[in-house]
Structure formats: C-alpha cells, structure tokens
Design a binder for these strands. Sequence first.
DNA 1: TAGAGTAGAGAACGTACGTTCTCAACACCA
DNA 2: TGGTGTTGAGAACGTACGTTCTCTACTCTA
Lengths: 181, 181
Amino acid sequence: MDHAEATTRLLDAAERLFYARGVQAVGMDEIRGASGVSLKRLYQCFPSKEELVVGYLRRRDLRWNAALAESVARTEDPVERLNAVFDWLREWFTEPGFRGCAFLNTFGELGEAPAIGAAVRAHKEALRTYLDGLVEDAGMPESLTDQLYLLVEGAIVTAAVTGNPDAAEQAKAVVAALLNH
Amino acid sequence: MDHAEATTRLLDAAERLFYARGVQAVGMDEIRGASGVSLKRLYQCFPSKEELVVGYLRRRDLRWNAALAESVARTEDPVERLNAVFDWLREWFTEPGFRGCAFLNTFGELGEAPAIGAAVRAHKEALRTYLDGLVEDAGMPESLTDQLYLLVEGAIVTAAVTGNPDAAEQAKAVVAALLNH
DNA sequence: TAGAGTAGAGAACGTACGTTCTCAACACCA
DNA sequence: TGGTGTTGAGAACGTACGTTCTCTACTCTA
C-alpha cells in the first residue's frame, strides 16, 4: 500500500465516521481500524487530527459540488436548471445516512479552529459561486443568487433536523414565486 | 444559595460557555468555576452533563422565542409583522458573540443523543408554530409558513458562517416577493 | 452546648484519546 | 548474504474530563 492509497483509505474512513458521528466522537484509533492503515502511516499522511478533518472537508467539498453540478447539468434549459438544484437536494436528503451538511455540523463542533472555519467558508463560497453561474446563465438578476443560496441552506438544515425531505419541494415553490415575480 | 439560585447560575454559565465554545470543549469543572457552584451541588441540580445540556437548550428555547415574539409584537400591522421577524434576526446577528443557532450547533455536535435531538426538534417546532400564527393573523395562505421557516433557517445559518448580517435583508427581499405574488 | 446532618473544596478514580515510542519482522540493495 | 532502513502492531505517555469520594467546617436543632 503506497502513500496515495493510504491517504484515500484514511479519507474514506474519516468521511464515513466523521459525517455519521461527528469529529470528536471518533478517535484516531477508530480511523486506523476502519481504514486498515497503521497509526504510524496515518500520522505520516496527516500529522494531526485537525489536518485529517481539513482533508476530509476538502475532499467532500469537491465531491459534493461535482455531484450537484453533474446532476444539474443533465437539465438543458438554463431556467429549469434552477429547479434542478432542488431536485438534486431532495435526492440527497433521502439517501440513507443523510445527516445534514457536513460543513455546518463540523463548524458547529469546531468552528473556533481557524483551519476548519476556512474550509467551511470555502465550501459555502464555492456553492454560492456555482449558483451565481446558474443565475447568470438563466438570464436572471444577480440578486437572485443570494436568495437561492438562502433557500438551499434553509432546506438542508430543515431536512436534517426534521428528517423530512419535503423541505426541498417547499424551497422549490419559493423559487417558482421568485421566477414568476 | 438555594437550589433555585444554583440552578440559575449553572444555566447562566452553561449557556455562555456552551454557546461560545461548544459543549464538548467545556468541562464540568469550568462550569463549576464560572458559576461559583460546587461540583456536588452541580450534580444535585443536573445529575449528568447531558441533563445540563438539555436544561441549557430548554431555557434558551424559552428566552429566544420570547425575545422574538416580544420584538415582533411591537409592530401593529399583521402583514408587516412578517417583515419584523427578519428585522429582529438582523439585530440578533449583529449582537457580539453571535455564533449561529445554538440548537443546530449542538445538534451537529451531539445529534446522536436522543434527548438532545428531541430538544432541538422541539425548538424548531415551536418556531414553526409561532410563524404559523403570524401567517394566519396576516391572512396569508398556510403554505407560506414553511417557506418563511426555510428563509429564517437559511438566514441564520448563512449569517453564522459568513459573519455577515445581510442575510436577514436578503431573506426579507424574498418575503416581499412572496407577499406580492 | 453537643451532636447530626449538610455543604464546599478539591483530591481521586476510571476512562478515553491524541500522539509518540519500542521492537520485532521484513524488504531492498551492495 | 549481510546490513540498513522502513514498516506495522501495539504498548506507552501525558493529558483531560465526567463523576464520585473524602474530609473538614459549618449550621441548625434539641
């Protein structure tokens, strides 16, 4: 097992465990057991738990954004794509093990740590930038971006707390009102 | 110092410390020091840390709801009251030490614990019920409640992560569109 | 005032965790 | 093949924390 595969395995285990149970509830020894990577190697790949958490967030950021973009891109009409965002959210909400936004959860837990806060903000900024592109392609006023963003965040949080994926449809209804306005 | 005052002091210290730094980052000994209540008494009032956390959430729920309702009630017009919700949110966002929703933060940290999850859901349900009353008083269709709720959650989360209170105004703009629709 | 119950201060206990260290096994290369 | 460097397994270390225990001092009552 080389360095790259060890890193992948560690991130796989970290993502699964951290997302499901929170960062502080999962020890480095459990990451070692779940990944099959020795503690020595673990600390070679990630010199501290905080760096492993940042690595986890960074990779999840890339994956999450890519999954959203890929799903939305299957819709042709640029205006309809704004709705497609919430269709994808609904799919995500119904996935087994959905526990809300990994970034918000980690932020609530470790927001003090500057590296964590930076990773969370980077993720949210990337989302906002992506939405901005969709709004521009749809020929809508720029002010719609922040409003869409609020609805996405609200839907994620609500679905996480209530366990009910209908928040996606409710947000979509608001989008429809904004577009018709 | 009697039992009631000890309880109050403990909840005061717990609320300040837990909200500012998270639950897991604050030890029982620090609560003792900040409250001036002995460990023995602490464990008489709250037999475990989890019960102290639940007590903290419950009292914060009452206070937060009351502050919102009191501020909104100063507005006479029932329709205008829907906007007043977001005016109050903006005030909250600009308070020193604002760190987002205590309930969401705790949920992200300890959502597994059933008692915590229940306290969080109770708070969110109370908020939704309150919004439902405002919507009814304003003579608006019931479907507006969930939409308002999404906007409130989205604004809180966004203000917390970005540190920018403008999320309140952005949400308000969406409300205006929904009302004009 | 004597005694019984209680409170406070803080030591103590058990556990868990992040991180480092030890040591035996093994791979690679001269 | 012999020696050197690296690896993995897991023990060890230091710390922190939730919770309980000890002991002293005080307070109330008979």
